[in-house]
Design a protein around this nucleic acid. Structure first.
Lengths: 228, 228
DNA sequence: TCGTGTCTTTACCAAATGGTAAAAAAGTGA
DNA sequence: TCACTTTTTTACCATTTGGTAAAGACACGA
């Protein structure tokens, strides 16, 4: 139920063995060697850097290769192609991206839970800006490769959380507003610090006021909204 | 003082006359013919569509050409190249983009002015989503072509506005918070509805709840923050 | 109707880019 | 050390893409 659609991307099978691996009988699951793990994660890290900066079409295999310290054909030895790398990255991202929302406890104190969520989300944006920009790029272009993920993974969790928040509101434990828009606002304000960093860095050059100030401001913003 | 850096892009001069036009003496300003105006604006409109959907590198001249109903070389008759089109688009955008912020009246009622700004910004995002995505794309990639514009045009206006807001706060006319982060939050929450439309449309399929709800929610969010 | 300047098309090109084939090199277990 | 597998490199290829040259079509005043 929680499995993401591209689950298979994660259990990698070397390209030349793909067919024999499918024939049942022999061909054990083929545990990836140390060097395989190392190079695959190097490639994914390099690709994250490049895709998040230039978007899918703006990124080139050569850039990824040089960033990873490998040759282009070498990269295509580990991944089926450019799209394969991108999709792998996106489906891994989706998991860590949903974690803070999953961590929200329906039985906890509403304000604590929601403000905690805001803080976790902001921390993520500040600590993993590349991931945030990768995601933003994909959505900006109409989610061509992640549409199904959104429907299959994000939507159910989103609906469950908005239901919980709606119940809290009905119970009068937090002020009434639209739960869906509340979550949008949390996403928008937190991710803004990663996605629009090029802008905020120009307008607010003082880093500590930018990052510390963001925590304070968002806590204030949402606690004022939520207190009944 | 208010002039944008690429001002010259706007007063276009046909490619072949560029040199003679610079020699003083004759070569009058060369008022663009009706057909030139029509085709140039067609191209810019097509380019806005394509750039906003695919980003700078993801867009191709062929796409722009076919979207504009012209041939590729014909497009290069009107513009110096791909980058020229993009830069022209960005510098035009900057103006309309800053308008709502300019319209904020330092002598008006603080809450009215700020909530009015939120509403104008949201209307813009909903009515001009392509422009919003073009801007977002550019910033996401580190503002490679718009960095100078940000410093020259946006920063002074931003500083002036945050000063005004800070004064309002000191006077106790609105609740104290960080003016810079306040503006960031307004930008983030409003533009989110354009930039992340692919996501919000999946999560909140009901269009009227999405758009009308956004107005209500953001009014509530910011008026709770601002009332002392 | 002619000629001149404006606009459009056809036919290209060089560089970049995603990807492949196959040989060479490097490990690895016996 | 030898045979065998895994990994890496070298040398290509086809397509796409931004861009150009030059001929042709068109508009319009004299």
């Amino acid at each position: 139920m929680n499995r993401s659609i591209c689950e298979q991307c994660r259990d990698w099978i070397p390209p030349d063995v793909t067919e024999t691996a499918q024939t049942p009988g022999k061909a054990p699951p083929k545990i990836p060697s140390r060097i395989q793990q190392r190079n695959r994660s190097r490639i994914l890290d390099a690709a994250l850097e490049v895709f998040s900066r230039h978007g899918y079409r703006g990124a080139t295999l050569d850039q990824i290769a040089s960033e990873a310290g490998l040759s282009k054909p070498n990269i295509l030895y580990y991944f089926g192609g450019k799209e394969d790398i991108h999709v792998t990255l996106l489906s891994r991202l989706m998991e860590t991206w949903l974690d803070p929302l999953k961590d929200m406890n329906p039985n906890g104190d509403p304000i604590t839970e929601l403000l905690g969520y805001v803080n976790r989300k902001l921390d993520m944006a500040l600590e993993l800006p590349r991931e945030s920009r990768l995601f933003a790029n994909e959505i900006l272009q109409g989610a061509p490769r992640m549409g199904p993920h959104l429907i299959a993974d994000l939507k159910p969790l989103f609906d469950a959380r908005t239901d919980v928040i709606a119940r809290w509101m009905e119970q009068g434990r937090i002020a009434k507003s639209d739960p869906a828009h509340l979550i949008f606002a949390i996403w928008a304000t937190t991710q803004h610090y990663a996605d629009f960093a090029a802008q905020t860095e120009v307008l607010l050059p003082d880093q500590s006021r930018r990052e510390g100030g963001a925590h304070d401001f968002l806590s204030q913003l949402f606690s004022k909204l939520l207190t009944p």
